[in-house]
């Protein structure tokens, strides 16, 4: 399977998506707004997983950073009583960044199976710590988060205001990831998937390439965790659990590995799927994810984005060459 992202496809699909996400929500009922807001932070976390995947790096432990961001918020509220988004978003980003800077020292040496599983091990360590250090973390009960403020004005997690704030963060993340992927650092990341030997013989350390990308992914995870904490209003150790990491990977796979519109489509589809599945098949939700993943891997390696492109090609009557598998 080829890793590719048709960045030239961004403008049109991106403009349409942005327009829909900005204009439509005021006309939607509250529960859909809630699902959309969840899709926003899901998207941000998944961008981290997707970016790593561009270098052929799969992580089963990205919930580590998501939980780091979420608990950074939790502790801030618990000890400082601060609920200000303008402070907490940078804080969550910083927490994710620092965690990635530490864990990344180990991780930058590994690829493939080891990278995937070591990430999982680190996230399970955090899960264990969150569970056991209950006098700090609240244990299985977790921590209550309450309502955020934006520049001092209350912004409930299910409000339109909060949705637009999350959407703004999505815009910023999209810009950052887009520029990263078009930059030398982003290209070296993709080059890593192709040929590490050539990179080293170009005078560039592959470990640095991994480390930098890992920092970006961790930071995005932290931001996503902050947004999630206020949307859901409650944080629990399960935020660091493998199922959470598995869901990130699932969405990344749904929305084709790289790129921006793909994961957004994946995140939206995922949140709606989950909303219905948890209502009608609460015991079979993982099974559904598993089956969908299996089908994508075996029959549609491009994910939903490839399906979209095929439909678009049929409508506009030209092949954009997006089907590279």
């Amino acid at each position: 399977m080829t890793h590719w992202m048709d960045w030239r496809a961004l403008p049109r699909a991106g403009v349409v998506a942005a327009a829909l996400l900005i204009l439509v929500p005021p006309f939607l009922p509250g529960w859909i707004l809630f699902v959309l807001t969840k899709a926003m932070f899901m998207f941000i976390a998944v961008m981290g997983v997707s970016v790593l995947l561009r270098g052929g790096l799969l992580t089963f432990g990205h919930a580590l950073y998501y939980a780091t961001g979420a608990y950074a918020v939790g502790f801030c509220i618990k000890w400082l009583g601060v609920r200000e988004l303008l402070f907490l978003i940078p804080l969550g980003a910083l927490a994710g960044f620092i965690m990635a800077a530490l864990v990344g020292i180990v991780m930058a040496r590994y690829r493939e199976v080891f990278f995937a599983m070591l990430n999982l091990a680190f996230s399970m360590m955090l899960f264990g710590a969150l569970l056991k250090l209950y006098w700090i973390t609240g244990g299985t009960d977790g921590l209550a988060i309450g309502t955020a403020t934006l520049a001092g004005i209350a912004l409930p997690g299910d409000s339109y205001g909060y949705y637009y704030f999350a959407l703004t963060m999505v815009g910023i993340v999209t810009l950052v990831v887009y520029r990263f992927m078009a930059s030398p650092a982003g290209y070296f990341l993709r080059a890593m998937y192709d040929n590490e030997i050539r990179i080293e013989y170009s005078g560039v350390a592959v470990r640095q390439v991994v480390y930098r990308t890992y920092l970006l992914a961790g930071t995005l995870g932290g931001v996503a965790g902050v947004l999630a904490a206020f949307t859901i209003g409650h944080i629990v150790p399960e935020d660091a659990f493998w199922i959470q990491s598995g869901e990130f990977v699932f969405v990344a796979l749904l929305g084709v590995f790289g790129g921006v519109p793909g994961p957004m489509l994946g995140a939206l589809v995922f949140e709606f799927l989950q909303t219905y599945a948890s209502k009608y098949f609460p015991l079979a939700w993982q099974m559904m994810m598993g089956i969908i993943m299996l089908l994508i891997i075996l029959f549609q390696p491009g994910g939903l984005w490839a399906i979209y492109q095929r439909i678009e090609a049929r409508i506009t009557g030209k092949d954009r060459g997006g089907d590279h598998h």
Binding site: S183, G186, V204, Q208, L216
Partner: peptide, 19 residues
């Protein structure tokens, strides 16, 4: 382009485009 970026010491530039 990647070789040129490496030579210029900009392999870690993550903001300006490669092209």
């Amino acid at each position: 382009l990647l070789s040129l970026a490496a030579t210029a010491g900009e392999s870690s530039n993550f903001w300006r485009p490669l092209h």
